[in-house]
Design a protein around this nucleic acid. Structure first.
Lengths: 202, 202
DNA sequence: CAAAAGTCGAACAGCAATGTTCGGGTTATC
DNA sequence: GATAACCCGAACATTGCTGTTCGACTTTTG
């Protein structure tokens, strides 16, 4: 298991890590950041970068994959049992911040990677949401008149748009989670049922 | 009034129009389309294009402005009186298709124009929605626990995401309006009230 | 019909990024 | 401590787009 990537020296692994971290930062700041810029930020020669990644696309892909994987790992500690509505609220509380951080990186990824690849990268976290939504439907608290994939997409979209609103200065960061939760919970409520009131959970 | 732009010959106006139309098509297909490509598609020399637009950004700006203005004009015929929920449904029915068409163009605009400028271009249609939402709130059918700007943004976002879903093949175009309406209407419902059932309006 | 305005193709200059090669220096690793 | 892996800067070739200039030709317009 540990001998799997014995081809790489500890040295190289450190460089790769520095590059990916720098890529996340630079591309987050500016989606058009050049590879030279990233290499410089990583404290690494441009040639070294090319030694590890064949193309720009590979760098973006790896950086995005890392960001998502980390975010996904962070969500493992969220308790998704109990009332699906409360579980969803907890998930949002833990997620939106990650989305906000990765948002700019995503923009870069959208330029470089195919839509299919991006979805592929996302389907770790997506399936987590999917499971929760499915349970909520089974328990009758989430609507069944719209496809699960649509509902998952709504959550995803609303979180991203909140990130945009924050960046545009139209939404205070400490209101974000409450707004997202209130919106999505209402959107998920089956027609004919009452929209839940969460009572400002601050 | 008609003498305002007497500086331009009928000739030139035709070229400009052809360029903007071609720009909308090309950039819609591929946000990175070059100016040569656009000029060619417009059946016009590249030099002619530069005679009318100083830079790439100006072309994109003008094309986007035209698309939005046209869309906005098309919405003038939508009846926004009566029950705000039904009015919203009518607005969505008429809008989502326009959003879908302009979506790819928007991607191009986001690369070339500042976020502020894009918002500025959008605030014609946005204010229309804003008025409707405000009325719905005053009548007690839309929630007041979230800012108007957030609600407007949710509608905008959900429509765009529907366009994405269609393009990805996960949403049939003839379901789009119903999905959007069902989602947004629920999202706009005040906590403690019933989510409206629209009964498949097909 | 004649001047003004517009169009066109070709060619040029500039730029910025990508990706590659080379040779010499460093550092892990066994 | 020797060898292989790695790092690095500089330089090069390539590509593709932008924006400009030139001179000749065509169309409006009054």
């Amino acid at each position: 298991m540990s001998s799997r990537s014995s081809a790489k020296r500890a040295d190289a692994l450190r460089s790769i890590d520095a590059i990916l971290q720098a890529a996340a930062e630079c591309l987050g700041r500016n989606p058009e950041a050049s590879l030279s810029e990233i290499a410089r930020a990583a404290g690494v020669g441009r040639v070294t970068l090319y030694a590890h990644f064949a193309s720009r696309a590979e760098v973006v892909d790896a950086a995005m994959a890392r960001a998502i994987e980390r975010g996904n790992a962070a969500l493992d500690s969220v308790d998704l049992t109990g009332d699906p509505r409360l579980a969803l609220a907890r998930l949002v509380e833990a997620s939106w911040h990650l989305v906000d951080e990765a948002r700019a990186l995503l923009v870069a990824a959208q330029r470089e990677l195919s839509a299919g690849r991006i979805r592929e990268l996302h389907d770790g976290p997506a399936s987590r949401v999917e499971t929760l939504v499915a349970r909520g439907r089974a328990e009758g608290v989430f609507r069944t008149d719209l496809p699960i994939s649509w509902l998952v997409n709504v959550l995803h979209t609303v979180m991203h748009s909140a990130a945009d609103e924050i960046r545009a200065g139209r939404l205070a960061p400490d209101h974000a989670a409450a707004h997202i939760t209130a919106t999505v919970l209402a959107a998920f409520t089956p027609p004919g049922k009452l929209v839940p009131e969460l009572g400002d959970p601050r």
